[in-house]
Design a binder for these strands. Structure first.
Lengths: 144, 144
DNA sequence: TATAAATAGGATAAGTTTATCCGAATTAAA
DNA sequence: TTTAATTCGGATAAACTTATCCTATTTATA
């Protein structure tokens, strides 16, 4: 569904959000330990998320990654996914046709539409806040 | 969503079905031309589908790939996808957790459930027959 | 039985994603 | 101003997916 990079990105953002609530910045290393990912690769993904302005970074000593507290509820899964995997999940044809639309559909075009639309809704309606709260409350987990 | 191999596999099966209705066997080369795929790679995928008993092959002169006419309505997309991509699309965790279930869910577990279940339904309810008819009637396309 | 037309399958190459490493740039604090 | 803790970014390697090529095997027909 998502690339590994995107999976790491989502989990990283959740962990960053949790810490940002407490005014703490976190390093790629801490993040990687918490989400069970390779830390150098995770760092690359974080860089990309910063470039796409999904999260913020502060360089130098006492720096790290963070999100501004009052943004957490407005950051949606869709933004993270789009920043890392692009929009192929929204626009790409299920069977890989270059051109696939109502006028020239692939064989599964209509059937895919339903699934894709539901996925899209889900991604656009799910905020980082919601996911972070699930972790904090212990009702969901970032690793194992 | 699906691997390239799986996309080719699905399209190939549809084309084979269309021809099997007319009692014709088809070669990897014909298939590849029709679905716009690399023919040697396509041949490998066809071999896998034969091994998994989704389609049949007949070796030697006048051979080729086919599906038995009265199976076409019973072959579902789910079988093809499972034969090529395995069942990660059904069972894998959306965020890549090794262990992810009701008792130990990832942050998006519940939200994914809906999407995945709809996808599963779709794949299990869509037959090769249905897709082949859409191509024959010109209301859907395998390439371009 | 010889031939030609097929699929089967191994070896290998090319391309993409995932992962690692290291040095440069930045910055807070001593 | 020096130091130490950081992110940034380029180079490279490893692993996986996609793609190609060549030979062996099978089989209907002449």
């Amino acid at each position: 569904m998502f690339s590994k990079a995107c999976e790491y990105g989502i989990k990283a953002c959740i962990f960053i959000a949790i810490n940002s609530y407490e005014g703490k910045r976190v390093s790629p290393k801490e993040i990687a330990e918490e989400i069970n990912s390779p830390h150098a690769f995770t760092a690359k993904i974080l860089q990309a998320l910063v470039r796409q302005r999904v999260i913020d970074s502060v360089k130098g000593a006492y720096g790290g990654f963070e999100v501004s507290k009052n943004e957490i509820q407005h950051i949606k899964l869709a933004q993270i996914v789009k920043a890392i995997d692009g929009d192929r999940i929204y626009n790409g044809c299920g069977l890989g046709l270059e051109k696939c639309d109502e006028k020239h559909p692939c064989p599964v075009h209509d059937k895919f539409k339903g699934v894709r639309d539901e996925l899209k809704q889900m991604l656009e309606n799910t905020s980082l806040e919601e996911l972070a709260l699930n972790i904090k409350s212990g009702s969901a987990f970032l690793k194992l």
